[in-house]
Computed example of a mutant assay.
Amino acid sequence: MAKLPCPCGLDAAYADCCGSLHQGRTAASTAEQLMRSRYSAFVVRDAAYLLRTWSATTRPRELDLEDDIEWTGLEILSTTGGSAFHTEGTVEFRAGYIADGAAGHQQEDSRFLRENGAWVYVRPVSFNT
């Protein structure tokens, strides 16, 4: 059986990459790794993972993922901080999608913090579609 590639764009199988984080077998060691796993969670529509990795200070009560969006690729544009030795960081990314038959992209500079030792998404610093 062929292993599915990870949607995050790294050269790894989904099960060994973001799937491992989604299933709770591993935890993100950097803000970028968390960003990639959150993008993959949008691709596979894992709302529970997205909520689990959202800061308690900004997390919505529920998350409804849009079924009519097909995510087509992730590009990391820049990072600040966010390493295993930091407590905060930012990741700027561009995510491609197709909605209503038209291609588009979302570009965001996201803020991440450590809460109880784990990386979590806080909010966008800037956002463009």
Rank of each mutant, 00 (worst) to 15 (best):
R111I: 10
T72A: 02
V44S: 01
F85N: 12
L10E: 14
Q106S: 13
P124A: 04
E32F: 00
D16G: 06
E108D: 07
K3V: 14
T80W: 12
T80H: 12
N116L: 12
N128C: 11
G24S: 09
V122R: 01
L74G: 09
A13Q: 10
A27C: 15
G81L: 02
H86D: 15
P7W: 07
Y97R: 01
H105W: 10
S83D: 12
A12E: 15
A56W: 13
E88R: 08
E115C: 00
S78N: 11
E70N: 06
R123A: 10
G117M: 02
L74D: 07
L4Y: 13
T87Q: 14
M1Y: 11
V43N: 04
R45P: 07
L77A: 01
C17Q: 10
S20H: 06
T90A: 01
T87L: 13
G19N: 05
C8T: 07
L74N: 09
E62T: 14
L34N: 02
Q23W: 08
D67I: 10
L74A: 04
V91H: 08
Y39S: 00
L77S: 01
E62N: 13
D46G: 05
A15C: 12
P7F: 03
C8I: 05
V120Y: 00
Q23S: 15
D67F: 09
L113E: 14
E92S: 08
G101D: 00
S37F: 01
A12V: 12
D46K: 04
S78G: 09
A12W: 10
N128H: 14
L50V: 11
E88Q: 14
S83C: 11
L10D: 14
V122S: 00
A84H: 11
G96W: 03
A56T: 15
L34K: 01
A27R: 06
R94M: 08
V120C: 00
R123W: 06
R114Y: 11
T72L: 06
D11N: 05
D11V: 14
A47I: 04
L63Q: 10
R25C: 07
E32R: 01
Q23G: 14
N128W: 09
W119P: 00
T72D: 02
A15R: 12
H86E: 13
V44T: 10
T26S: 12
S29A: 15
E62G: 14
S78C: 04
A95H: 00
I76T: 11
D16E: 13
S20N: 05
G24K: 05
C18E: 10
V120D: 02
R94F: 06
A41R: 00
G81D: 08
I69Q: 09
S20I: 07
F42D: 00
A13Y: 08
C8Y: 06
A84E: 12
D11E: 14
D64K: 04
P124E: 06
V43Q: 03
F112C: 02
D109M: 10
V91L: 07
P60K: 00
P5C: 04
Q107Y: 10
A2H: 11
H105V: 08
L34D: 03
A118E: 13
R38S: 04
A31V: 02
T90M: 01
R38T: 08
K3H: 15
T79M: 04
I69H: 04
A41P: 06
A48P: 08
R114W: 09
E66C: 11
D46W: 06
D16L: 12
